[in-house]
């Protein structure tokens, strides 16, 4: 006996579904509304992944062209935003493969774990305990962006999706076609990498 699959499927609520149904029903003049909703976010995501502004523009354009082409195939089984980022992430990855440089390296946990007890600080440094608004400066924000850029791509993708774009572990796993466990491992290493960069910045300030 086969139970209807639909019974187990959670209904997804998404503010974009109505607009997508209208576009798919032939109201193509409403596609710019969809672009307007995500253009800014996608541009910044692409900028963080490509670094170069021209490459980021290419990525955004390529992503929206693909969305336009394949919107008819969208099955309303996931939020549109997640589907959009899946298209964008795969565009970024393909773009990187076409580029000659951009080395890809693995980050291991050992790099970040103190090798001896004497290496570790025994009190919380100021930068980790003072109020956030007192700490923030344009220089620091530049430093954070710079540190994000230096992360190998596979870790950068995860931390950007999780900590900047605000996707959950499960959503990030779905967007990148990874397991939840893999997302967690990459996120932790990416955060440790950034923490070391920030530590270096504050210690040398």
């Amino acid at each position: 006996m086969t139970a209807p699959k639909r019974a187990n499927r959670k209904e997804i609520k998404d503010k974009d579904f109505e607009l997508i149904r209208a576009i798919n029903a032939g109201q193509f003049d409403r596609f710019p509304d969809l672009v307007k909703r995500y253009e800014q976010k996608l541009y910044n995501f692409s900028l963080r992944m490509c670094r170069d502004a021209a490459d980021a523009e290419d990525t955004v354009q390529e992503t929206f062209i693909n969305v336009f082409r394949y919107l008819k195939d969208f099955r309303f089984e996931t939020k549109f935003k997640n589907w959009l980022y899946r298209v964008a992430a795969s565009t970024c990855i393909k773009k990187r493969r076409r580029s000659k440089f951009a080395p890809q390296r693995e980050l291991s946990l050992d790099e970040f774990y103190p090798q001896s007890y004497t290496e570790v600080p025994h009190q919380v440094p100021d930068w980790a305990q003072m109020p956030l608004d007192k700490l923030l400066s344009n220089e620091l924000l530049d430093k954070i962006n710079e540190a994000i850029f230096t992360l190998p791509e596979k870790y950068r993708l995860v931390i950007v999706l999780r900590d900047i774009e605000g996707f959950s572990t499960a959503e990030t796993a779905q967007i990148l076609n990874l397991s939840d466990a893999n997302v967690k491992v990459r996120l932790h290493r990416a955060r440790l990498f950034l923490r070391d960069r920030l530590k270096g910045y504050f210690e040398n300030e």
Binding site: V124, P125, A128, L136, L141, I164, R191, R195, L198
Partner: peptide, 20 residues
């Protein structure tokens, strides 16, 4: 204490990353 420091600095890193 070292693990507490590690947790606090990691937490602050995440907070700062969110301000990008």
């Amino acid at each position: 204490v070292p693990c507490f420091v590690c947790l606090q600095t990691l937490k602050r890193t995440v907070d700062l990353c969110k301000q990008a």
